[in-house]
């Protein structure tokens, strides 16, 4: 829950603009970007994700640093598990 996962915004979800598709190490998932509504956010921007919500916009360099940090801490697998685990943007199965 305390993991901050860096992701790159790829696209927005047409019907629900508070959701964006982000990519983390090749895995694409929808996350909620409503908390960044005060600032311009577009495809190619990087964000830090906590429990399915983008909490801050960061630079590409800071995103890269954060990813390396997670792997140094041995938390990169956990982070990928979390990203892959987000169900709310997936079709009901």
């Amino acid at each position: 829950m305390c993991l901050a996962i860096p992701g790159k915004v790829i696209d927005f979800v047409a019907e629900t603009p508070q959701l964006a598709v982000v990519e983390v190490s090749g895995v694409k998932r929808q996350v909620n970007v409503d908390l960044l509504r005060d600032e311009p956010l577009g495809p190619g921007d990087w964000v830090l994700i906590h429990v399915g919500f983008a909490m801050s916009r960061i630079s590409a360099a800071a995103a890269e640093e954060q990813m390396r940090m997670l792997s140094m801490m041995g938390e990169d697998l956990q982070a990928m598990e979390e990203i892959e685990g987000y169900q709310f943007g997936q079709d009901p199965s």
């Binding site: 429990v51 399915g52 685990g85 987000y86 169900q87 709310f88 009901p92």
Partner: peptide, 14 residues
């Protein structure tokens, strides 16, 4: 176990 509160919400909807 859920990774996001939104997942819990979705579970309720389903």
């Amino acid at each position: 176990m859920v990774y996001s509160p939104l997942d819990a919400l979705k579970l309720a909807q389903g």
